[in-house]
Design a protein around this nucleic acid. Structure first.
Lengths: 119, 119
DNA sequence: TGGTTTCCCTTGGAATGCAAGGGGTGAAGG
DNA sequence: CCTTCACCCCTTGCATTCCAAGGGAAACCA
């Protein structure tokens, strides 16, 4: 049975992209690969999702781009974090932590009256 | 300074609503309260977000509703999980687990070349 | 009486992701 | 040589979901 595709919760993609660039410039295709591999093939970024997202981040001055050659000798657009991008990454990492913790807390709540040891 | 408001990652609200109903019927206002309190006031559901969401869930037959009287003696609409809703809750709990784990794995990645113990 | 809390709802706009397309180029193999 | 594959970039249209900002009514309390 094929693994079903997991849809992105909207708003969580940007921080993943920013994270992919933390060690240096990468092109779009490599960012996709990074997210796929580091998530154990759970998070699969469609190209129609990725490129508009990259454009938005560049437009917000969180990323800067320039053309170059990939490791496979192909034309590729390399994105790097700007100073604002690094700051944004730090903030969004913290936001994710807080958010995920809050959701998990709600979802793991036990019975409000009976408490943990219910019948 | 006041705590800044955390926006919902889109797609994560439904499972929180379903969870709020796992112990029995509740009205909308109580669902909001449940999510706020169990998240330590991190997750604040706007009414303009909640009610359309409840309508969607009811429309999908995941919830069923009927009017009644609240504990404060006010007219209120009580929602309860249908069988399909309970199934959906189980599935979305699993989805959240998988998703959160995958994102966290990516966001906690260490240097891809140097590995954990970098300079 | 007036204010606060509880409770329900709608509309419009903004944002984001997906599906489904298109296109160009280098390397490898028949 | 030429075809195929992997790599790499992009756009348009749509669906969905959320927030902001309104409005309304009933119960309680001072």
């Amino acid at each position: 049975m094929p693994k079903e595709k997991l849809e992105f919760f909207r708003g969580t993609l940007d921080v993943l992209i920013l994270k992919a660039l933390v060690w240096g410039p990468q092109h779009g295709y490599a960012i996709t690969t990074f997210i796929r591999e580091h998530s154990g093939s759970v998070l699969l970024v469609e190209e129609g999702t990725l490129y508009p997202a990259l454009w938005r981040l560049e437009n917000k001055k969180l990323l800067a781009a320039e053309w170059g050659l990939s490791e496979n000798n192909r034309k590729a657009k390399f994105y790097r974090l700007t100073a604002a991008g690094k700051k944004q990454l730090r903030e969004e990492l913290a936001t994710w932590e807080a958010y995920a913790a809050a959701v998990s807390k709600v979802l793991s709540a036990t019975h409000p009256v009976l408490g943990e040891g219910q019948a």
